[in-house]
Design a protein around this nucleic acid. Structure first.
Lengths: 208, 208
DNA sequence: TAGATTGTTAATCGATTAACAATC
DNA sequence: TAGATTGTTAATCGATTAACAATC
């Protein structure tokens, strides 16, 4: 699918294309030129065409891009149609916020289970998702194909839990703990959501 | 303080320096060379020296950097000592997760109040932080200097609430909603935490 | 057809890396 | 002093922007 190594800069822009194309489609826009899309997103038309050319030829001279088609292509590139399953480990406030409010399905994931050690939670359901005991992680994953685990546990148990998850053969970790997970296993991708880094950057920007 | 325009790439690395230097200090490391720090962070020694040189000369030939001193400098650059105050707007699961678990103080902020429209929450305290009615936003900010507002409200009221906040003269918005806030007012800095973008990027990376 | 707009090649710009004199 | 390591200048690398022939 991909012609050559895609740079991180391009990868990080793909979700933004996805988001803006969704908005356009919702707004009833049928076609758009790289120029107009660039204006809307704060990018140059050139960059958009360059980015997309990493993956194929999705436009048409004199016309531009068909919004619905391009969105379908970008969705496909992002892996939204790969039928990935996710579990969430840690059903505290943050975990619950994600379970109840985050649209896993619109990012291409099916959230199949949550895990926690709190006895008052284990056995219940949150927004329809069963909460199992964290002891059952390995057993559950062995029985249900699982591609990504969301880490919303306390930092103290992050490394240990990550190691257990890596051993199950999981493909990715979405890490909300403030712990840096250096994994020996390079096949597992770690995506960090570092709240502190984000707020510190904001502090810098308002302090200038 | 700053010699020239600091690039976003450098700004985004500053919190990482901060985090790693904290870890080193905790671990009792007194001094470190750019080489060793680079190894630990996955950067080149050259880049570290280049980055730091944007802000001053913090090292010593033949010795390297005194961890505690460098950490103090980086903290200062980030604005941690500027005594900024923050409020949180929206005390649902996500807001509560931040109130109860996020260390605002260690990123240089004092969280002074939370706002919500839920009558069962208004008037209570969460982790010692008073919860006020969102109607009182303007009044509160007029009476209490506030630099940053954390947006953990539903997307539907995001734009409206952001506009109200901007009008109060606030300096920054830490935006957890999935709504793109294009503000006419360019003095207000918006830092977005786009969960969906992050998970989509992870999807791409595990799909390759 | 004429105008618009693509995909791609070339030019530019900026960020990262290498090298090294200065010096602790 | 000799070795280590900085801050900075120069070289390289990669990403963004500009230009344009191809073509719908």
């Amino acid at each position: 699918m991909t012609k050559h190594k895609v740079s991180t800069a391009v990868i990080r822009r793909l979700p933004r294309y996805f988001r803006h194309l969704n908005d356009l489609l919702q707004g009833g826009v049928v076609r758009i030129s790289s120029n107009a899309l660039g204006d809307a997103m704060g990018l140059t038309a050139s960059q958009i065409r360059q980015d997309l050319s990493c993956f194929g030829e999705f436009g048409q001279q004199g016309y531009g891009y068909h919004v619905e088609t391009l969105l379908a292509e970008v969705s496909d590139i992002l892996g939204i149609n790969n039928g990935h399953n996710a579990i969430i480990v840690g059903a505290g406030n943050l975990g619950r916020a994600l379970i109840e409010n985050f649209h896993f399905d619109s990012t291409g994931f099916r959230l199949t289970a949550a895990f926690d050690i709190n006895p008052t939670l284990v056995g219940t359901r949150l927004a329809g998702i069963p909460v199992l005991h964290t002891d059952k992680l390995e057993q559950y994953i062995a029985e249900h194909p699982t591609h990504v685990a969301v880490l919303t546990i306390p930092g103290g148990v992050a490394r240990e839990t990550a190691t257990r998850l890596v051993d199950t053969g999981i493909r990715g970790l979405w890490n909300f703990t403030n712990v840096e997970l250096e994994l020996q296993n390079k096949t597992v991708v770690v995506e960090n959501v570092h709240f502190a880094d984000s707020l510190l950057a904001l502090n810098y920007m308002i302090s200038e």
